[in-house]
Design a protein around this nucleic acid. Structure first.
Length: 332
DNA sequence: AACCCATTTCCTGGTT
DNA sequence: GAACCAGGAAATGGGT
């Protein structure tokens, strides 16, 4: 029924009023070309892609809680496009809210306002608040927990109130004490973690390959339907890249040797490995193993070999998002 | 259910 | 000798 054009029209009308009344900077966005779903999809599928001058998916790099009304609308329109939803059935007045308000909405409210799409919106929002930002916030969390003592969950608003979830996992999986320089000292105390590893290692051989996970249901039980895919797109090289480009996450873990060339160095190799292990819920990660994975990147040209330099690697042509130009778009 | 991908684990051997 | 580096081989888990 509703074609892409129709939807665009419906929303672009709304946009012109929104933008002109709210943010003079955004007012310049031409209504007709406000959002091409293609552009958005493209931007989405390759978050590393520099967003260039014109911010297409204005909401992309930002926490939903911080979205402006325009960004909320932008996002909703994207969801409409994405799900091929009939926009004409939507009560547009319901879209008049900022990110904080959106995040406060209960699933029923969204369903009321957006019909069946409401469910999609809810779960997508879930993804955005718990998965996408996870790309960074999880490191933040770990680092914060590292320095700060534990504190109770900031249980305030709706399901998205505090960014991630207050899942049992979220509250203790990272282990409130991330002893970055002391591999597996006391990590994962109460996570139901497979702690057979070390023991087995000491005594005899253990099975090769990745150890089985035990704490998987724990996070599925609270997500219910959201089970989709976890925080996708976070590969090792992206993890490394993010530590490098977000100084606030990089507490002396790594440094650029040559930013232009993409050459970087591990300063605290074991600490980085531990952090990676934290992310993968694998307490037995070591630099030895992490570096093996890094070496596999040579063949794929995600990394280039830098010989003679210990702990030094270089991003290759198949990596992205680390160049300064890219980072600007990525971050702000 | 089978396959593929991206690691993870282990290992041998070489280098700094 | 410790800490790395190079890769091969095999295993694993998530996604499709």
């Amino acid at each position: 029924m509703a074609t892409t054009c129709e939807i665009s029209n419906v929303f672009s009308n709304y946009f012109s009023t929104m933008y002109s009344s709210e943010d003079p900077n955004l007012a310049s966005v031409p209504p007709a070309t406000t959002f091409g779903a293609d552009d958005l999809v493209l931007a989405l599928s390759s978050p590393q892609m520099p967003l260039e001058g014109t911010e297409k998916a204005s909401w992309l790099g930002e926490q939903p809680q911080l979205w402006s009304k325009a960004q909320v609308l932008d996002w909703i329109s994207y969801q409409v496009e994405k799900h091929k939803y009939d926009a004409s059935t939507i009560d547009l007045s319901r879209c008049d809210m900022d990110g904080a308000a959106l995040c406060r909405c209960a699933p029923e409210e969204l369903r009321l306002a957006f019909g069946p799409l409401g469910d999609q919106l809810y779960s997508q929002l879930w993804d955005l608040t718990s998965s996408f930002p996870d790309e960074l916030s999880w490191i933040m969390e770990l680092l914060e927990k590292d320095s700060m003592a534990l504190q109770e969950p900031l249980g305030d608003q709706g399901p998205f109130g505090t960014g991630a979830s207050q899942s049992p996992q979220a509250s203790d999986s990272g282990g409130s004490d991330v002893d970055l320089d002391a591999p597996d000292s006391k990590l994962f105390s109460g996570d139901g973690f497979p702690d057979y590893k070390k023991g087995d290692l000491k005594h005899g051989k253990r099975k090769r390959g990745r150890p089985r996970k035990l704490s998987k249901d724990s996070r599925e039980c609270l997500e219910g339907k959201k089970s989709k895919h976890a925080p996708r797109g976070t590969h090792l090289w992206e993890f490394i890249r993010d530590i490098l480009i977000y100084p606030e996450l990089n507490e002396g873990l790594m440094k650029w040797e040559n930013r232009q060339e993409g050459v970087f160095k591990f300063l605290r190799s074991e600490a980085v490995a531990q952090l990676w292990g934290q992310k993968k819920k694998n307490s037995s990660m070591t630099y030895e193993k992490l570096s093996r994975a890094m070496r596999y990147y040579y063949k794929r040209e995600i990394l280039e070999r830098v010989d003679g330099r210990r702990l030094v690697y270089k991003f290759g042509k198949n990596s992205s998002g680390w160049k300064e130009e890219e980072v600007v778009g990525h971050r702000n």
